[in-house]
Structures are given as C-alpha cells and as structure tokens.
Design a protein around this nucleic acid. Structure first.
Lengths: 211, 211
DNA sequence: TCCAATCAATCAAACGATTGATTAGTTTTG
DNA sequence: CAAAACTAATCAATCGTTTGATTGATTGGA
C-alpha cells in the first residue's frame, strides 16, 4: 500500500501529458488533475510549470548517461566496439521512446536555451564516442575511409526513425511499437540489421570474413 | 514594388512562427503582428488559427508530391532508380528543413487527426515507392535479401538526422546548416554518401563493379 | 505529559494576463 | 453603390501563478 507522494505523482502526470500534448499544449490544471493534486502544488514543489519540465528532463538526462565510455576501454576490435555502442544506444532509445520524442521536439524548437544546451551536450557526448571509434578503426585500416559524420547520422537516424515513425506506416509490417512484446521484437530486428549494415559498409571488401 | 497581399503575408508569418515556436507556442496576435495585419484577418481568411496551420501544411504537402512514381517507369536498374529516389528525397527535405521539422513535430504529437492522416499518407506514399524498388531489386537478384523496412528507415532516418540535428554538433564539422552555401555542400555530401552506402550494402559482394 | 509553537503539505479561491475568436463599424475597390 | 478588405474594441475562456487559510504531524520547554 505504498502511496506515491504528490511530488512524484506530479512529475509522472506531467511527463505523460508533455509527451502526448507537448509543453505548451499542456496546462497546469491538466497536470494537477491527472496527478490528483492541487494546482498550487506545482509551484510549491517546482516553482513553475517550466520547473516541472526541467526536473523531468534533467532526471532523464542523468539516467541517459550511457556507459559508452567504458566500451572504449575494452580490449576488442573497433568493429566490436561499434556494435556494442549500437546495441546499447538502440535499446536505450527504444526503451524510452516518449522521452526521446520530447527531446527531439525540444531540440527542434529550442525555446528553453538552458535545456537545449543540456540536451545538445548529452547528445554530442554519445556522438563523440562513436566518432572516435570509427576514426580509430579507419586509422587502423580496419574500416574503409568513410564520411564519419554521415555514418553517425545513419546510426542515430535509423534508430530515431524506427523509434518515432508512425507504427504500421509500412504496409507489410504488422508490428505495433506500442505493444511491449512487439517493441522488443522490433528492437532486436533493428540491432541485427544495424550491426550487419555497419559491418558491410565499414569493412573493406577484400576482408576474409565478418558477421 | 509588388506588394504581397495580406492573405499570403499571414501565411508566411504564421509558417515562420510555427516553425520556430511550434503551433501552441504561437499566438494569433504574434502572427497578425508579424504579418502587419489585423488579428481578425486571420479568421476572415482562414476561419481559425488551425485553419491557417492546415492551409500551410496542405500547400506544402501538395508541393511535396515528389515525382517519385515517374522514376519507376524509367528503363534503368533498380539500383539507379533507388539512387534517383535518394537524390530527389534528400534535396527536397534539405530545401525545406523548417517544414520538415514542423511535420515531424505534428507526427510526434498527432493532436490534429486530420492533419496527422494527411502527413502519414504523404509519407507512406514515398515509402512504398522505395519499398517496391528494393523488393524488385531483391527479386531480380540484383540486391541482397535485406530487411527492406530497415533499409528505408536508414535512408529516411539519415536524411532526417542531417536535416534536423543541431548544426556543429560534430566537433570537427564547421558546416552550418543555416548558411545556404553550407547547406548546399552538406546536401551533396549527404547524397554522395547515401548512394555509396546503399550500393555497398545492397549489392552482393561478388559483383564486379559498382560506383 | 501536556501545551504551545512551528513546520511542511495541502486546499479553494482569486489574481492579472493572455488566449482565440467575434462584433460592429469603417475604408477601399471594382 | 455594393462587395470585399480592413480596423478597433471587446468577448468569454483559459492561462500560469499567487494568496491566505487550514490541516496534521513534529518539536521543545514547563
């Protein structure tokens, strides 16, 4: 019978509403109502509506600090490192689709500069990890000399596309991203594909084997 | 000294504001002010704020009906068809970045069902063109048997990522998407890369030549 | 142990400002 | 002169925020 306190119930309600209606599209009254709390509790705990938003995003960003850097330390090939990054990154995003959508909206609008910078920093951090791995792979002669920025755009863009594209937009696909089981299947399918893609594209043709 | 009429100046102002602040984040007063028109002109010409939005998006969608289908009729290989599609699609999106961002926000929120369906239809139309080309290529034995839905996600996702990712997010890149000349360079770079990517990935290894 | 003081938590009510929309009237134009 | 284009003023509704009072629990001195 552990009752969640008002503070967290406000955060949960706000995140749910922000995700489905956007920041401006959600009123403090809606949040209070959904949370079963009085309107003034929002300002009492978070100072303002924007304070609630900041709290949500900050918490998420904290949880999003992927252990990508530890991958760099491992004693494996650059290709295997890259595969591990793709694996972690894809899972992380597909497990937090609503947040990922919110993040993209915020980056696309950039109305709150402070939040914008936070998100951009968190993102470019992951980006630099990938960039370094690919560059090292090229230097070692393991990878073809490719356009690194574009390869990153492909990795991130493909994941984002799968995560945000309207479900069932493809005629043949019966997968619905909203159903957990289907989402899991889609995640594995995406990861398998992406690993195959980067292997095929980055590895020189005369290589003897890879899979 | 060709003066634009109020109707179109409202549309232009609204699009500019919607793009940078979002739909809910933009007020009719802002639109009227930016357009140099009286507030009531918005309702006079478009019925409502939503009417303005619908008009903007509808016009854009109309202009977005790419001549992709004509590509299908040409007497060239599936690979060349796919390259042409990528070429057209990338240029179209990078030439209309603000609209593309608006579209993604609208798809992500789906507050206006009518508009959501319109956008989804327009999108899945392009999607099916690509899908068909790839499937035919596979049937002909020209392409490897790949995950078609994922390949499409890569093509669209990569283009979207380049179009929407914060400029200069990559440390080394000095390209600023907001400067027209830089954007043009980036477009060519993206197209070159994507053509290379799909060729490398889709074409079986034992092929004698491709570029 | 009791009482007064203090505390954070919560509430209903109201604040001024802004929202999208409409009115009723005026100007412009063909 | 009639239709179209335009304006200032105002509408009710909603916005985010604040206020002042009330609650129940905690604390500290007598």
């Amino acid at each position: 019978m552990e009752k969640t306190d008002k503070r967290t119930s406000i955060l949960l309600a706000a995140e749910k509403l922000f995700a489905s209606q956007g920041y401006e599209g959600t009123s403090t009254r809606q949040i209070a109502n959904e949370a079963g709390a009085n309107m003034s509790m929002i300002n009492y705990y978070f100072g303002s509506k924007e304070g609630v938003f900041m709290e949500i995003m900050s918490n998420r960003i904290k949880g999003f600090r992927i252990a990508l850097n530890s991958i760099n330390g491992e004693n494996i090939t650059q290709l295997d490192k890259l595969k591990m990054v793709v694996d972690q990154y894809a899972r992380r995003i597909l497990d937090n689709i609503t947040f990922h959508k919110m993040m993209h909206r915020e980056l696309s609008l950039s109305q709150r500069p402070e939040m914008y910078d936070k998100l951009k920093d968190a993102m470019s951090q992951n980006l630099m990890v990938i960039e370094r791995i690919v560059n090292e792979g090229i230097d070692q002669g393991m990878f073809r000399p490719v356009d690194v920025r574009m390869v990153i755009a492909t990795i991130m863009g493909t994941i984002t596309n799968v995560a945000t594209a309207p479900s069932k937009i493809t005629a043949g696909s019966k997968l619905d991203i909203k159903i957990p089981a289907d989402r899991e299947i889609l995640t594995e399918r995406l990861i398998t594909y992406l690993k195959d893609l980067i292997t095929t594209y980055l590895t020189p043709k005369n290589d003897t084997e890879h899979l």
